[in-house]
Amino acid sequence: QEELVKAFKALLKEEKFSSQGEIVAALQEQGFDNINQSKVSRMLTKFGAVRTRNAKMEMVYCLPAELGV
């Protein structure tokens, strides 16, 4: 569980995922086979993730800066 949270936060820091499906796929690539869209959705809510525009003006998920991840 701890490893999943770390990987999840690291992915969001990249600010390149525009959908929950993309986050699920990226986590599965890292070996988290039991991850699915509903789990990702709950984690996004739990950590207060928001959708914002990145440098390329794409809408992407990211974590609020005050979490200091």
Rank of each mutant, 00 (worst) to 15 (best):
F17A: 04
N34L: 09
E15N: 05
F8P: 00
E29K: 11
Q28C: 06
L4I: 08
F8E: 00
E66C: 15
E66A: 07
F17T: 04
V5R: 07
N34A: 09
M59L: 14
T45I: 15
L67Q: 15
E3V: 10
S18H: 11
V60F: 03
A65K: 13
G31Q: 03
N34D: 13
Y61Q: 02
A25V: 11
E3Q: 12
L11I: 09
E2S: 11
E2A: 11
G68A: 07
K56H: 11
M57N: 15
P64E: 04
F8V: 07
L44S: 01
K56T: 06
C62E: 03
D33C: 09
F8I: 05
A25L: 13
A7L: 07
M59P: 04
I23E: 01
L11W: 03
K16T: 08
E66N: 09
L63R: 01
L63Q: 03
L4H: 02
Y61A: 01
M57L: 12
S19W: 07
G48D: 05
T45A: 11
F17R: 03
E58N: 06
F8L: 09
K46C: 06
L4Q: 03
R42F: 14
A49Q: 02
N34C: 09
S38T: 12
Y61P: 01
A55C: 04
N34I: 06
N54W: 02
Q1W: 14
L44Y: 01
K13F: 08
E15R: 06
K13Q: 10
V50A: 07
E29R: 09
M59E: 07
V50H: 07
S18L: 08
A10V: 07
L4S: 01
K46G: 07
G68E: 15
M43W: 07
E14L: 13
G31M: 03
V40F: 02
D33R: 12
L4W: 05
A7R: 05
K16E: 06
M57K: 11
F32D: 00
R53L: 15
R51I: 15
V60D: 01
A55D: 14
A65L: 14
Q1E: 14
K6L: 12
Q20L: 11
L12K: 00
Q28F: 09
V50R: 09
K46W: 10
L11T: 03
V40L: 05
A10M: 11
V60P: 02
L27C: 02
R42K: 12
V5K: 09
A65G: 13
L63N: 02
S41E: 15
G48R: 07
L67G: 14
L12R: 00
I35M: 08
A25T: 10
A25D: 09
S18W: 06
K39L: 14
T52L: 12
G31K: 03
D33K: 14
K16M: 08
L4T: 03
S41K: 15
E29G: 12
E66F: 08
A25P: 00
L4A: 03
Y61K: 01
V40T: 02
A65Q: 11
S19A: 07
M43A: 02
A55N: 13
E14C: 13
T52H: 11
Y61F: 07
E14S: 13
N54H: 02
E15Q: 10
P64W: 04
N54F: 02
E14N: 05
N34R: 09
E3H: 10
E3D: 11
A25W: 09
Q30M: 12
K39A: 13
G68V: 07
I23L: 13
D33A: 13
A49E: 02
T52R: 15
M59K: 04
K13T: 09
D33V: 13
A49N: 03
V69Q: 15
Q20C: 06
S19N: 09
R53P: 13
V69G: 15
Q30K: 10
L63P: 02
A55T: 08
K13Y: 08
L27Y: 01
K39N: 09
N36P: 05
T52E: 09
E14P: 02
I35K: 00
K46P: 00
K13N: 08
M59Q: 05
S38N: 13
G21C: 03
G21D: 13
V50Q: 08
S19M: 06
F32R: 01
A26F: 11
N34S: 12
K16Y: 04
